[in-house]
Design a protein around this nucleic acid. Structure first.
Lengths: 325, 325
DNA sequence: TTGAAAGCGCTAACAA
DNA sequence: TTGTTAGCGCTTTCAA
């Protein structure tokens, strides 16, 4: 590649001091109009751009923010990322996306790299598990936890979904339809969301006067693979007549198992998903689901990132039960 | 925030020269083992990370690559981004995603910012249209065009889909089923992909001995909105009995129109989509579609980014017609 | 109106 | 083995 175009190289081209070039390109008043215009014209011609590295080293804002997601094929995460990316473009923020696959080591590496480039803020869906060294990074950047809370030891603001009512309603709805053997697949107890959703499911059962059947309650890592496996198991087991999912990934995985088995989501195994990808309304007359207001979450995230003062606070958004078919 | 931890601040803490610290933290051999360990221990304790800005300014690789996409909710783009992000994590590359909304101004701004931070490479789905100033950035970074080719004036390598055969097969398949009024919605002629897909559709008609009906061929910006609008129009018009889509966004928009109108994709308006999101196999017995090998494209992209020498070359991947229902 | 010097954090090259 | 110096590109401060 050709040598970098810098204010010094331009200064040399034009036989003036690099300071005059700097001033001209930053539109300082103290430059003779002709000089300024000549410099700007020349800069344009040789394709000059300011070095972000130099600016960062002087302590300027990098205007870079990070987003850590388990993946980006799940439509919930995709829509979150999409909305957040749009909001970032509006604010001239650059968005770096790291996929963690819910792996704590990948998460830590991502945080480290964001710290190195002096990202101004990070929005993250914390992976299940713990890490000691992450604290360093969490202290150096403004970090927002999304959807889940991981007890990192450092208090961070968080954007959460209040799905207790929606989950209880899901149980009530199925019970009203006559279901007694209602299964649940959710995330394990390492995640706050796993604990609270399971609790909500149980509260729903209690309200409906149904005794919990341990065989019908499965928890594990919040992956599509897990949802698929557990749903398959439940289908083979032939005990459950209804299934509620407590997670975005899990829900898609479980739905996959149903479709593969040729079961309609309203059929012998009544299904309530989690999250509301567009295609849920198109499948077999429509999939009932817990709908989460993605866009609101994303806007709140960028709003928080934009705030200089960073309040440690929980922001909760209500999920609703969407009954279809 | 607390003042930044640097090699100098550590040097002062320990009463030694900052060079010894630098060497210790870079594992240079010429440091006394005890000194090195003491330094590393201290660095860990105070949460030191190397400044990426300082490294970049010295001319080190930034290990940052950019990805410019119209959006990331379309499952094709999401899967591409997901695969590419995974490949990047493997290679310790940081992926910056900019959404352009197929807008040339947004695209240019994104390229400028990537240029400023000295991104090593960029993969982009070029927006329709032209821009003069983009050339500057294209010359400064390794740029790969994805799916579409925009004549930027600067030759860049590109990763393309060879869908001619698949599109011709789609027409042949519909014709074999007895359809004579086959509609097509595609991107307009500003994009190479728009031109070539329309040509393939026409070649298919010719092979099937069908005369083209101008009312049934629509082109425009490659958006879901356009697909929705044109499909609606075709449905109302009641002339077409089959519809082929020539674009990812267009396909989802058109399918949306069909579902909204209560039409099964195999029903009165036989549908062939473009791209193969997972839910296409679950809707109304399955949606026939032109399937594109996303993962192969993404791996090729990262492979090309990794190459120091940048051959100007076209890489083509075959699409196939997937008949369902 | 213009220029020279210094410093942001880091490492290569030289000196001790 | 350790330390000093210089310079990457930029802007702030001070001097001309």
């Amino acid at each position: 590649m050709s040598p970098r175009v810098t204010i010094k190289s331009i200064a040399k081209d034009l036989g003036i001091s690099h300071m005059t070039v700097s001033r001209a390109l930053s539109n300082h008043p103290n430059v003779l109009k002709e000089t300024r215009e000549a410099i700007q014209e020349h800069a344009r011609k040789v394709g000059y751009v300011k070095s972000a590295a130099a600016k960062a080293m002087r302590g300027d804002e990098t205007r870079i923010v990070g987003l850590l997601l388990p993946n980006i094929v799940n439509e919930f995460y995709a829509r979150f990322a999409n909305t957040m990316a749009l909001a970032c473009e509006e604010q001239s923020l650059q968005l770096i996306i790291h996929l963690t696959g819910d792996d704590i080591a990948a998460e830590e590496k991502a945080l480290q790299r964001l710290h190195e480039i002096q990202a101004q803020g990070v929005v993250m869906v914390p992976a299940p598990g713990h890490s000691e060294t992450e604290l360093t990074h969490l202290r150096a950047m403004s970090v927002i936890q999304l959807i889940r809370q991981s007890d990192t030891g450092e208090a961070t603001p968080s954007i959460l979904v209040n799905d207790r009512t929606a989950l209880k309603n899901a149980v009530a709805h199925l019970a009203a339809e006559g279901h007694k053997n209602i299964a649940f697949i959710g995330a394990d107890s390492r995640l706050s969301s796993g604990r609270s959703r399971l609790a909500a499911f149980r509260a729903g059962l209690a309200s409906a006067g149904i005794q919990e059947e341990p065989m019908l309650v499965c928890t594990g890592p919040p992956s599509a693979e897990m949802g698929l496996k557990q749903a398959k198991r439940l289908i083979e087991q032939k005990k459950a007549t209804a299934l509620i999912c407590g997670g975005f990934e899990i829900s898609n995985g479980a739905l996959n198992a149903l479709m593969d088995a040729g079961l309609s989501p309203s059929g012998p195994m009544a299904f309530v998903g989690y999250g509301d990808p567009s295609f849920y309304s198109w499948i077999g007359g429509g999939v009932s689901t817990i709908s989460v207001p993605v866009e609101s979450l994303a806007y709140k995230a960028v709003e928080l990132l934009g705030q200089a003062a960073f309040e440690i606070q929980e922001h909760r958004f209500d999920a609703v039960l969407l009954v279809r078919s």
